[in-house]
Design a protein around this nucleic acid. Structure first.
Lengths: 344, 344
DNA sequence: TTGAAAGCGCTAACAT
DNA sequence: ATGTTAGCGCTTTCAA
């Protein structure tokens, strides 16, 4: 009944077992035998000892000594959201392939939490950070960049063109969506927006405006409702719009969760989609084609988003210089299904 | 144009600024002033210096010294899968609330990758680990547990009753699903299974068998197809079943992705759901109610799954002793919608 | 009430 | 070709 609290093996023990000094052991194991002209006999005996003892070097100690943690930080507003989950995965995979590990955190869509998490990640000496910022406050992030911490903003961002940002082409996406509605004859279109202060939301709104203007229509702000990208906001906004402006013939939801809320509201109001109400949404999702009204949507290439962010971060770390180009726009794609009816 | 490579402030610098020794500084800042009877004047001057210099202690150094990393490891088969993403989130949130950070990794549904990731996490001296194991090989995980590393298995697991495992009550869930179909008069039911060797799959199969037997029906293995929990497997399995056993009147998909595949297959084969084919699935999802055939499903409480796992892990770390109870079953819930037709 | 010093496990400059 | 030593930044024993 030995309660072996198996402390882990240290380099020193390996060195002793092999009858050499720790430095020799270190060199033999980190592939520097060649460079230090260590005899292959010695090298082998160190390797054997290490294997026999199941030695696994303490990355903690190594990091402290080398000041390289091989750690990346990721701060996302909601890890459970499939959109962000996909981003987390791409970053994780790319990191792993490069010998990095990722500390994943969830800011819960809250600025103070985000700030605290970033500090904590810094205290762990991460070598790079990707964040999808919650608020409109960019100061703390700019400071990170000025401290030479490789930083990449994803999805959301700021007008500050100095921070490396990768996000979708929201404006053309929104334009395409509106054009689709306009071409089908819709003239009173309700907008279910997400968080108003975020870059994606602002740019989608610009796209909406552009599209309207190119049709000679004007932008009626009483046709916009919503405050968040979640289901509840979509539901409330749709309910509000449908009762204040019953003449609405189509809804443009700024996220698939907003669309989900719209579906609930429409069903409660007895407005069948697409017959009594057309719907289009930003963000495609797996079941979109199998809905009662197969949903026409603007699909973001979320994998691409994550991959590009990861690549930019890793390159920045490797070269210790921020990329020339700061703004990266990932194209979106309009997926036509049948949630839009022709009218007029 | 000063290119300040702002090295971060160390405790030593704070001590110097405050005119005290590092030990005093350390004590003052880690709330041990009281215990060490440090004068409040000294304490304050240390705090002031720390604040002025924006001191942030190196968690790396602290961890090395104290042998406590405040790091948790999480290994999931696919972080982008909403089911696992939700788990990741719950663990992250609970960890954060307890001062822990989480290293998130993705095994890509591959055993060797999983093993490598676990080793790497160990090298980083994580204090606890939650893994959703890929294969049927439990040896390496048992060893971790024997090395006294707090470990919690989530979703999947083994028959080994010694490893702390939290998973859904797959068997009753599957029984409920089958009963629903049987009560509606279905007698030839195709099973779209997931990865055959996983615990959830095996237990769901048991539930299916039980339900069949209690009806006096026997379990026909030619009515089972599929090899993975993803869309492709569901699609192929459904296609296969629908052509080899065209008399099938209902399909039970073992995951919502499998159900998605079934939807595609059914649509290609011209079998309308629910009129020409009934469908039920394990795992609910947000849009299930708005499908062309609102999907009846067995809903897993994934948040609960994650929360329980996190709690068990954290408690294990705190008390340095594994919980009495090893097996945790989270209840599932049958959600009736209208993808099942009465027949016969 | 405070300081000096050891040491966590590793790497690398400086000896031989 | 290998060993000695210093030190990464912190906590904590031991001394005063």
């Amino acid at each position: 009944m030995s309660k072996s609290t198996s402390k882990s093996i240290t380099l020193k023990e390996v060195a002793e077992a092999a009858g050499v000094s720790v430095s020799t052991a270190s060199r033999a194991l980190s592939g520097k035998a060649e460079a230090y002209r260590i005899s292959s006999a010695t090298e082998q005996s160190v390797r054997d000892a290490a294997k026999k003892l199941q030695f696994s070097p303490s990355l903690l100690a190594r990091s402290l000594r080398s000041q390289q943690t091989k750690l990346l930080g990721v701060v996302l507003p909601n890890v459970a959201n499939p959109f962000f989950a996909a981003i987390a995965r791409e970053i994780t995979l790319a990191a792993e392939a490069d010998g990095y590990s990722v500390l994943l955190t969830d800011s819960q869509e809250n600025s103070e939490t985000e700030a605290r998490l970033v500090e904590q990640l810094q205290a762990r000496q991460i070598e790079g950070l990707v964040v999808c910022p919650v608020g409109m406050e960019e100061a703390h992030l700019c400071q990170l960049a000025r401290q030479k911490l490789p930083l990449v903003l994803i999805d959301r961002g700021f007008n500050n063109r100095e921070l490396v940002t990768v996000t979708s082409d929201h404006q053309s996406g929104a334009r395409a969506a509106m054009n689709e509605l306009l071409e089908a004859g819709h003239r009173t279109i309700g907008i279910l927006q997400g968080m108003p202060e975020t870059l994606p939301n602002r740019e989608r709104l610009s796209g909406v405006k552009e599209s309207l203007e190119s049709c000679g229509l004007d932008f009626d702000s009483s046709l916009i409702a919503g405050h968040h990208f979640d289901e509840a906001s979509g539901y409330q906004a749709a309910l509000h719009l449908l009762s204040t402006r019953p003449e609405i013939t189509a809804l443009f939801a700024f996220s698939n969760q907003n669309a989900l809320g719209a579906l609930r509201a429409a069903s409660e109001r007895g407005r069948a989609i697409p017959d009594d109400l057309s719907l289009i949404a930003f963000d495609d999702f797996p079941f979109a084609a199998y809905l009662a009204a197969p949903l026409t949507s603007v699909s973001q290439d979320v994998n691409q988003l994550g991959q590009v962010a990861a690549r930019l971060l890793l390159e920045q770390i490797r070269s210790s210089v921020p990329p020339q180009q700061k703004q990266y726009r990932i194209p979106v794609q309009l997926i036509r299904r049948s949630s839009i009816t022709k009218i007029g």
